[in-house]
């Protein structure tokens, strides 16, 4: 029993250390958002906020175009996340449950798209989008985000479907469901966790993307949040209070989504990866 006690103590120490290590920078971001401007650069630093203020939140929401950025980000990440999830689910199922020629070629292609530096794709992609009048358009940004997240999500979903017993699929077809019916009525409901994981992954990726947002969007009315946050770094000045307040606001939708999906999530990400 003594050994178990030591293990227990060890475990709790570990948990506390991880909590401190991971939470400290986030804590710093949070309290900075609530500090008045003069306290932000106090030396020595204030680890506990002396005067709590909401002025940065008020300034960022009412004094800048932040509400517009926020709406644009919701629109872009929501739509792009949904498109990615749907396309990846269909493709992942096809790759997991069917035998056909070019299958390994397609799998190779999916991994290969991840290996070429995205940075150099900006100019050719921009040219293409300009020809289709998709520059400075949220539609363009949505399609780009969807496309760039699909390869990883397809691999994720494929692993998921591969995990489901083959017999289920076959018996459903014999019962007269047909191939699509088997997918739609049997396999899909079983893969809810995978869908949840994929959706949250695709949402977060689109929510936090900066490079394509800067390159493709010009008008203030179409900018997403990430550009809004980057704009607080000016040539000679960083508006720390506003930036941290903005960052805290930016976290809210993700936590809402997390809270909604968490029960599926942990089972989700991994099973996909196993076979990915």
């Amino acid at each position: 029993m003594k050994r178990a006690n030591y293990l227990q103590i060890f475990r709790w120490c570990g948990l506390v250390i991880f909590l401190l290590m991971i939470a400290a920078p986030i804590y710093w971001l949070f309290i900075t958002a609530f500090k008045p401007e003069i306290d932000i650069f106090a030396n020595p630093p204030q680890y506990l906020p002396g005067n709590i203020t909401f002025e940065h939140f008020i300034d960022v929401w009412f004094g800048t175009s932040f509400p517009v950025f926020f709406r644009n980000s919701l629109l872009v990440a929501g739509t792009a996340g949904s498109i990615t999830t749907i396309a990846a689910t269909l493709a992942g199922y096809a790759l997991a449950k069917f035998q056909f020629r070019l299958k390994s070629t397609i799998l190779f292609l999916l991994i290969a798209t991840q290996m070429f530096p995205i940075l150099l794709l900006v100019v050719p992609l921009f040219t293409q989008l300009a020809a289709w009048k998709l520059v400075n358009s949220l539609t363009g940004l949505i399609l780009v985000y969807a496309a760039f997240n699909i390869p990883f999500c397809v691999l994720l979903m494929r692993g998921f479907f591969a995990d489901l017993p083959k017999e289920l699929d076959e018996s459903a077809q014999i019962d007269g469901c047909g191939q699509f019916g088997a997918f739609w009525r049997i396999m899909l409901p079983l893969s809810l966790p995978g869908l949840a994981a994929t959706l949250i992954f695709a949402f977060i990726s689109a929510w936090n993307e900066l490079l394509f947002a800067v390159m493709l969007i010009n008008s203030d009315s179409k900018k997403p949040l990430t550009i809004g946050l980057a704009s607080f770094i000016e040539k000679y000045n960083i508006s720390w209070g506003l930036m941290c307040a903005g960052a805290v606001i930016a976290l809210i939708p993700i936590f809402v989504l997390f809270a909604y999906i968490l029960r599926y999530l942990t089972a989700g990400l991994v099973a996909g990866a196993v076979k990915g």
């Binding site: 900006v122 100019v123 921009f126 040219t127 300009a130 800067v214 390159m215 010009n218 008008s219 203030d220 550009i227 980057a230 704009s231 770094i233 000016e234 040539k235």
Partner: peptide, 18 residues
């Protein structure tokens, strides 16, 4: 239209190149 200074040069280069 505004672009943050740190990303301005890349942005303008891309716009001109395309």
């Amino acid at each position: 239209q505004s672009v943050p200074w740190d990303q301005a040069h890349e942005k303008l280069v891309t716009m001109v190149a395309t």
